[in-house]
Nucleic acid binder design. Structure first.
Length: 302
RNA sequence: GGGCAGAUACCAAAGUGGCCAACUGGGGCUGACUGUAACUCAGCUGUCUUUCGACUUCGGAGGUUCGAAUCCUUCUCUGCCCA
C-alpha cells in the first residue's frame, strides 16, 4: 500500500531534520512542499536542506525551479502527483515535508481546474486597481461574478484581482470553476504536525534568522537584487533586505523585521493547519513518539 | 546641594477639567484564505460580560471640584543643567 507521510508545521520547527531521519528509516524519498525551497537561488533564506542532506536522501522539489519561473500551486499539484505516481512504483512510503499550507492541500486534496492567467490580463486588472481603486474592482467583480462577490473577502485586493483575472481569462464567472471538491488520491496519507510552545518557537525563529545572516543571507539577497520585484522574491528574508538596500530601513531594522515576519508567518501556518483535523500533532522534540506513531499507522495500513 | 523637565496600558507615545477605558504606532493575540499563498486580508489587545453594560485605571498619598489622566500640595523615581 502506498503511503504518503506528510510532515508539516510552522517554519523553523525542525521539519527537515526529522524528515531525513524518517526517510532513512523507511528508505523513502522526500518531496518538498515548501513553496520557496523550490527556487535554487534561495538557499540560505529558506533554510533549504544542505547539499549533504540532499545527497544522503533523495529529495525532490528542492532547487527544482528558478526565481524567474512562473510557478504556482496548481502546477505544483500536477507535477507533484505525477512524481508521486512514479515514486510509488518503487517505494511504499514517500515523505512530503514543508510548511506551505496551500501546496500541501494541493497534494492531499487537490485544487480545482483553473487555467493559467495570461500576463496581459493580470497586468490589466492590476492597472485598473492601481488607477481606480478598490471599490472599482469590487464593482467589476459584482458585475462579472456576483456569486463570488458575496463570498470573497472584499477588502482583500489580491483575492478580488484573482477572481477577475479568471473571469476575463475564461469568459465565465470564477465561481463556476470553484467546486471545492476533494480529489481521491491513490495513496494513503498520514499527516504529522510538529509544534512547540509559542515562545520557544519564536526564540528559535529569532536565532535562526541571526544564523542566516551569519551564513551570508545579505550576500545571497544582494545577488538577486535586480529581480526584487519578482513575486518569488516577495519572500520573508529577502523583501526586508531589499527595503534596506533601497535605503528605507537600517540593516538592524531589516533583520528585526525578518524575525517578526517569520514569526507572523509561523502563526498563519498554525492557523491554517488548525483547521485540518486529520493532523496528528507532536512536540517537535518528541521524536520517539513520532516514530512510534508512524510505525504503528504504517502497519495498520498494510 | 540648587534649577528645570518628566513619570499614561506589554513598549513607544498623544491627551492637559466633562465628548477618556483613554488618539496613534509597534509588539502580541485570534482569525480568513482553492492558485503570484513565506502572498494578501480582517478583528481583538484594562477586568468581568455573548451583547447591552458594569467595574477598576493614567508613579504614590492627600486635596480642590458637581466632575480630575488633566488643577493644587507633598512624597518617590528618572533625565538634563548649575554647583
Amino acid at each position: 500500500m502506498a503511503v504518503l507521510i506528510v510532515l508539516l508545521g510552522p517554519t523553523g520547527i525542525g521539519k527537515t531534520d526529522i524528515s531525513i531521519q524518517l526517510a532513512k528509516k523507511y528508505n523513502a524519498p522526500i518531496v518538498s512542499s515548501d513553496s520557496r525551497q523550490f527556487y535554487r537561488e534561495l538557499k540560505i533564506g529558506t533554510a533549504a536542506p544542505t547539499e549533504k542532506e540532499t545527497k544522503e536522501v533523495e529529495h525532490f522539489f528542492i532547487g527544482s525551479h528558478s526565481i524567474l519561473d512562473n510557478y504556482n500551486a496548481g502546477q505544483y499539484e500536477e507535477d507533484a502527483i505525477n512524481l508521486l505516481d512514479e515514486l510509488f512504483k518503487k517505494h511504499n512510503v514517500v515523505i512530503l515535508v514543508g510548511g506551505s499550507m496551500m501546496y500541501i492541500d494541493a497534494v492531499c486534496n487537490g485544487l480545482d481546474e483553473i487555467p493559467n492567467v495570461p500576463t496581459e490580463i493580470r497586468e490589466f486588472w492590476q492597472e485598473e486597481f492601481k488607477n481606480k481603486g478598490l471599490s472599482h474592482i469590487q464593482q467589476e467583480l459584482f458585475r462579472l461574478d456576483p456569486k463570488h462577490y458575496k463570498e470573497v473577502d472584499l477588502k482583500n485586493p489580491k483575492r478580488i484581482l484573482h477572481a477577475l483575472e479568471i473571469c476575463l481569462t475564461t469568459g465565465n464567472p470564477y465561481s463556476d470553476l470553484r467546486t471545492g471538491k476533494k480529489k481521491k488520491r491513490n495513496f494513503e496519507i498520514i499527516k504529522i504536525g510538529l509544534n512547540k510552545p509559542r515562545q520557544e518557537l519564536y526564540e528559535q525563529i529569532n536565532l535562526r534568522v541571526d544564523k542566516m545572516i551569519e551564513k551570508g543571507l545579505m550576500e545571497e539577497a544582494k545577488q538577486y537584487y535586480p529581480f526584487k520585484n519578482l513575486n518569488t522574491l516577495n519572500t520573508v528574508g529577502y523583501k526586508e533586505l531589499y527595503a534596506h538596500f533601497d535605503g528605507e530601513i537600517t540593516q538592524q531594522e531589516a533583520i528585526d523585521l525578518i524575525k517578526k515576519n517569520t514569526r507572523n508567518y509561523a502563526k498563519r501556518q498554525l492557523t491554517w493547519f488548525n483547521r485540518d483535523k486529520e493532523i496528528t500533532w507532536f512536540h517537535s522534540k518528541d521524536e520517539e513518539n513520532i516514530f512510534q506513531t508512524i510505525d504503528f499507522r504504517l502497519k495498520d495500513k498494510k
